[in-house]
Design a protein around this nucleic acid. Structure first.
Length: 640
RNA sequence: GCCGCUGUAGCUCAGUGGUAGAGCGCACCAUUGGUAAUGGUGAGGCCGGGAGUUCGAUUCUCCCCAGCGGCACCA
């Protein structure tokens, strides 16, 4: 007998060997019709599978969240079948479920075109209509290998070889087509429905390794209903509207051009936002005892060889040869420069922790295919800092840093922050003893701060383990921004030391940290997070002063002067245009506040205020309006 | 870097083997209008760069550059 606990908490006994299907039928006929699969202790299983042991059981219908996983997986299989029916010479490889959908990688001489997607979709609808049942078989290794070898499915053969010996080889059939698959699947292809769409074709390396051949990947999205599909496609369109590259152009913040791939041309408005961020960060750093410094943009290659950067990243550095035949490297990081500043003048243990910060512009020759708007550029500004301290101080410093970082993110409306801990990578400098020490110290700091974190094995920097701070934005996308890295290697390599209480020389520990990460990227993230509608303190243009009639022009000039005197950034619009036109234009430009001035306002010293995104108008005395805005435009860290 | 797609006016996009068009924007003129487009006139282009095929290329072919979507990479 098996004892099964249902979602409502009830417990019932069943005969051994009862399948999910039998279970569903025993509950109700309609449930058994709607059932796609079942779950045991949270794990999905084929409806036809016998229930192997006691546990929490649930019948999965298409209304359960878990159904999406099944629908997407099955859609991927049907897509693979469709592709092979259309182009029999195509090899199938893998086709997993991903966020919002699935993909399947194919090996084929000729790549798919976007037109092919429609053809494939049509074929998929045919296959789904046939409503062939998914059936599972367990094959022997030899049988499977012989079958796929004979079919010319060499990638599948490679997959079979990679499956551990103690694991069963499962084959799922749908009609005449079959695939090696770990399952589970729904009952039949008809259960997929019509809520899917193929989205794009792309290249992808076999097994994610750039040494391997490139396969053709087709991405699709799948949902349990047409309505959900429609909503998803609509969300994609909305996300496109917040794209920082688009908004950057529309709002006249910055541009890119061919002559400087991966480099930002900042326009005045964008630069104002950038400077607002720096001013904010400078205040936060000042109050946390950082000293701001500035190190050279170019330094002799020899220094980069000593630091280890040349060996690890030389191919990704910009270099320049001068007439005197010296080779200089544009700095890809600020740390070696900061070490020189630390080294200049003998340091005592009494000076530690020695905290220096720089808004340094770094240069990295990123691979062309990696460039992406401001999110991945070749020249960017880091809010970089280095804390030189003793090993005993690591924990305290990391705990403080953590508090600072989280409080900064909060000021930008990011409450949802994930922390990842990355330990030693394969390519690294320093002995294992040093790594043991620095990993233990950083881990202790996270634990002391009471943080929950995810483990990211092997993803640390080449000189030390790191914490990464990942923000979740307004539409649920994750962005890795801040980082804290404990480094027991570089100070030694670059000959930095301090005089310990004993009078002996000791190498300090270096904590590398960035909070925004890249200022350029952070601007891009903010643009997308706020969809261009910045809070007043960040908005490059805060108020547009618009006149209705030219009689109000002089008054508008007075209003402008008052706004400027209050530290706000207004623009004046006294053009010979109708007020409708001006409102429309400034709304498109996402100016947060409009002051509309006509004869009435000029006469009694008031302004008619319209906020971005609202049709309401509020009439207020000018001084009252300005002091309210002044209050609102105060950066969050300066509010009382 | 790899696979695929794209590149025409400031922006969004039509178009053709015989050196180009729309809307918006811009300039000028008229209009002084109360909260998301007032009307008229006009200027604006080496059709991403280079080579080839051709009597002739923005259009066809090849190479390069850049952008876009992925993959790989990300100190």
């Amino acid at each position: 007998m098996v004892s099964l606990t249902f979602p409502d908490g009830s417990v019932r006994e069943y005969d051994d060997g009862i399948s999910g299907k039998d279970l569903a039928s025993s509950i109700s006929k309609s449930l058994s019709k709607k059932a796609l699969a079942f779950s045991l202790d949270g794990d999905l299983m084929d409806l036809a599978d016998p229930i192997p042991h006691d546990g929490q059981v649930a019948i999965i219908t298409r209304n359960e969240p878990q159904a999406l996983e099944l629908i997407r997986h099955d859609t991927a299989h049907v897509m693979a079948q469709a592709v092979q029916e259309l182009w029999p010479d195509t090899q199938v490889t893998i086709g997993p479920v991903i966020d919002d959908g699935f993909f399947y990688d194919f090996a084929r001489e000729e790549p798919f075109s976007t037109d092919d997607l429609e053809t494939i979709e049509a074929k998929m609808h045919e296959i789904i209509k046939l409503n062939a049942p998914f059936t599972k078989e367990v094959w022997s290794r030899d049988e499977a290998k012989a079958y796929f070898t004979e079919k010319g499915e060499l990638f599948k053969v490679e997959l079979i070889d990679a499956i551990p010996d103690d694991q069963e080889l499962k084959i799922y059939k749908q009609g005449d087509w079959l695939d090696l698959c770990r399952g589970p699947h729904m009952v039949s292809t008809g259960q997929i429905g019509t809520g899917f769409k193929l989205l794009k074709v792309a290249g992808a390396y076999w097994r994610g390794d750039s040494n391997n051949p490139m396969l053709q990947r087709i991405y699709g999205t799948a949902w349990s209903s047409d309505k959900e599909l429609k909503t998803h496609l609509h969300n994609l369109e909305e996300a496109e509207k917040r794209d920082h590259r688009r908004l950057g152009r529309e709002m006249d913040l910055f541009h890119f051009q061919e002559e400087a791939p991966g480099s930002v041309f900042w326009h005045d408005k964008g630069w104002r936002l950038f400077q607002t961020l720096i001013a904010y960060m400078r205040r936060r750093q000042d109050e946390n005892d950082y000293k701001e410094v500035n190190s050279p943009d170019m330094m002799d290659k020899g220094l980069w060889e000593k630091s280890g950067h040349w060996e690890k990243f030389g191919e990704h550095m910009f270099t320049t040869q001068t007439p005197d035949d010296r080779v200089y490297c544009c700095k890809p990081m600020n740390c070696p420069g900061h070490v020189q500043i630390f080294k200049n003048g003998l340091k005592s243990y009494r000076e530690l922790p020695y905290k220096i910060a720089e808004f340094g512009k770094v240069h990295r020759y990123e691979p062309s295919g990696a460039l992406h708007g401001m999110m991945r550029v070749r020249h960017f500004t880091q809010d970089d800092a280095h804390v030189f301290c003793t090993q005993d101080q690591i924990t305290k410093e990391c705990v403080e840093l953590n508090q600072l970082i989280l409080s900064i993110y909060k000021d930008f409306g990011f409450e949802n922050v994930i922390i990842k801990y990355s330990d030693r990578p394969e390519k690294r400098v320093g002995s294992d003893e040093v790594w043991d020490k620095s990993e233990a110290a950083l881990k202790k700091a996270v634990e002391a701060a009471g943080l929950t974190y995810e483990l990211n094995p092997g993803e640390g920097a080449f000189y030390g383990p790191k914490l990464e701070y990942v923000l979740r934005d307004a539409i649920g996308r994750d962005w890795q921004c801040g980082t804290v890295q404990v480094d027991l290697n570089l100070p030694g390599r670059l000959g930095a030391f301090f005089i310990a209480p004993s009078g002996e020389k000791e190498h300090p520990v270096m904590i590398h940290r960035a909070m925004f990460g890249s200022l350029e990227r952070f601007c891009g993230i903010l643009i997308e997070h706020y969809a261009g509608r910045f809070p007043l303190w960040l908005a490059p243009t805060q108020v547009a002063v618009c006149t209705i009639v030219s009689e109000a022009d002089n008054y508008a000039q007075d209003v402008m002067a008052k706004l400027r005197a209050a530290g706000l950034n207004p623009i004046l619009d006294i053009r010979n245009e109708k007020i409708n036109y001006k409102v429309r234009e400034h709304s498109h430009a996402k100016v947060p506040v409009l002051f509309v001035l006509g004869g009435r306002e000029a006469e009694n010293g008031s302004v008619s205020i319209r906020r971005l995104g609202s049709k309401d108008q509020t009439v207020m005395a000018i001084d009252e309006a300005i002091s309210a805005l002044q209050e609102e435009a105060t950066p969050p860290d300066m509010r009382t």
